[in-house]
Design a protein around this nucleic acid. Structure first.
Lengths: 138, 138
DNA sequence: TATTAAAAAGCAACAATGTTGCAAAATCTT
DNA sequence: AAGATTTTGCAACATTGTTGCTTTTTAATA
């Protein structure tokens, strides 16, 4: 499968625009997750704030990126693996936030564990966020 | 152990004030978690917005409540169990967000599972948030 | 390649959320 | 009850997120 930036956009029937290319490249250029603020800092001099919001929203809808829940009110976004379809994410991996460097990783190889929920509860999705020291900081 | 509202505050060496009593009672009166917005709606006519912020912050610092990460940028707070000490939380339970009624539960009996992390990663805390249909909505 | 319809970006204005400093009021200590 | 301390409320501000509309860019088609 082609993995160029333009290919990713076209595959998701998105028109190729400068801001989408730029923002998508930010994700491809590094392994961690990005908070909205990070993206705005890196791309915001060039693009309007609103465009960043709308682009991220579009990417989430198309399944190109996914959100990672945090406890500090700053949604983080990370690239999805290829098997994410529009409106149907398959992010069954664990996220890791380093308390030292503050980088968020997608641990693609660590699968979210099974949970035994109390009677009456049915879960459709489980998010696991581990916090600690990453391999670069230890 | 005494569980009156005043007792909880005194035990944590907090002075007993109207707003703290009111906000703490909101948590005691119901089982789910509360978002800042909920609290402001319920207590905000009586108290200043800033007071709500500061009170919640104080409660978190004292270990009376804890935060629950979400993917929608609205921090939720829930009461801690009694073994939370100041600055040292013991929230090894799973959280459950109902996608229908939007209530967040602390599943105190569901312990966060062990995770096998990749080499080099050490985690100090693991957050698990399950999403689905709760016992009241099914 | 030029024309045109559709989509996206930029702009402005606004709404919501969160923060800070300081004076007034309430609480705690003795 | 009086004074020291803590908390509250207020005002002003910063940040973050949203909406409507016009201009610009992209993509489709001749």
């Amino acid at each position: 499968m082609a993995t160029g930036i333009k290919d990713i956009l076209k595959r998701n029937s998105l028109s190729v625009t400068e801001s989408r290319e730029k923002i998508l490249s930010l994700f491809l250029d590094q392994s961690g997750a990005l908070a909205h603020g990070d993206i705005e800092k890196k791309a915001g001099e060039k693009f309007d704030r609103v465009t960043v919001y709308r682009t991220l929203q579009t990417f989430v809808e198309k399944g190109i990126i996914h959100t990672i829940p945090t406890a500090d009110n700053s949604i983080r976004y990370a690239l999805c693996k290829d098997d994410c379809k529009e409106g149907h994410h398959h992010d069954h991996h664990v996220h890791f936030v380093c308390t030292q460097c503050n980088v968020t990783y997608c641990l693609d190889d660590v699968v979210t564990p099974e949970l035994k929920l109390p009677k009456g509860y049915t879960s459709s999705h489980i998010e696991v966020v581990a916090e600690g020291i990453c391999k670069n900081c230890k």
